[in-house]
Structures are given as C-alpha cells and as structure tokens.
Amino acid sequence: MTPESSTEDQRAFAVAALVPDPEVPCINVDELGILRWVRVENGVATAGVSPTYSGCPAVQMIEEEITKALQSAGYEARIERVLSPPWTTDWISDIGREKLRVYGISPPEKTAHKISALFGESTVNCPKCGSDNTEKLSEFGSTACKAHYRCKACSEPFDHFKCI
C-alpha cells in the first residue's frame, strides 16, 4: 500500500489480499508479498502483482484469482505485472512466515540479498520440532520455490521455502 492510497484503494486491496497462493494455500498473496498495490479509478481496480520465481507456473492462476475476487466485489478488474523491483522472499510477512512453519514448510531466511553461489550453507530449522540438525536432500523440491530437507532429530522430511 502506498501512503497516498484512498479508502477505496484500501477496500479493494483487502478484497484482493484474501486470494491464497494456489501452491501454498496456507498463505495469501498479501502475506506472500506479491500483491504490491491496488488502485481504484472510476470503478476499475488495477492490481499490481509481482511474479515470484521466473518460471512460477502459478503466476497466471494467481492473476486470474485476483481478477475474480475484485470482480465479485463489484469492480472491473485489471492486472499490472510489476517486474521491478523484483520480488524477494524478504517480502514474505512475519505472519506469512509463521503460517508457512505451521503448515510444515520451513520459511526462508531474511537474507535474500546475501545469497552465495558457492556452497554458502545456512541453518534450516525443522518446522515440526525446531531442531537445526537438518540435512538437504535436494536443492529443488516439489515446486520451483522449495528445496527438500530432512530433520535428523525427528526424522521428518520437509520442504524449505528457498531464499531468493
């Protein structure tokens, strides 16, 4: 939300914000940080949406869901894809992170700007028992945004939302 946003903008934003991520339905597009803003002008609500990963297949579906949500609230809806500045996992809200953890996905660290190309390992905590005694099974997991880990303390396999 921008400081100059009107009450009408905020109302439309609240409507669009409730759309869940289709691949991680525990978290909505606002908590994920990809709904950048909504501006209402003459009954037309334009939503600025940032894609997550370059090849995220859910982008189109998310845009359609936001359009539908705005339409059912009585707006004519438009989507504007906001590429710059690019989305980063640092924009996932604290509430979003907690929801991910409860859902069984270890949330990303808030250090996306420090990502190292060469084997810079950081600690990943198990979302079930909290132990940091975990090991990476695969850099790429069930979706493009996740890596696959295993907890050596409680033996639980889990997804880790990659820091990007």
């Binding site: 990963y53 370059s54 995220c56 695969s138 790429f140 069930s142 696959h148």
Partner: peptide, 12 residues
Amino acid sequence: LAMPNMSLDMIG
C-alpha cells in the same frame, strides 16, 4: 524434480 525446476527458471 531438479531438472524440470531448473528448466522452469530458464523458460520463465
């Protein structure tokens, strides 16, 4: 799993 994910990054 890794191959299609890397693929998606590049195609995206």
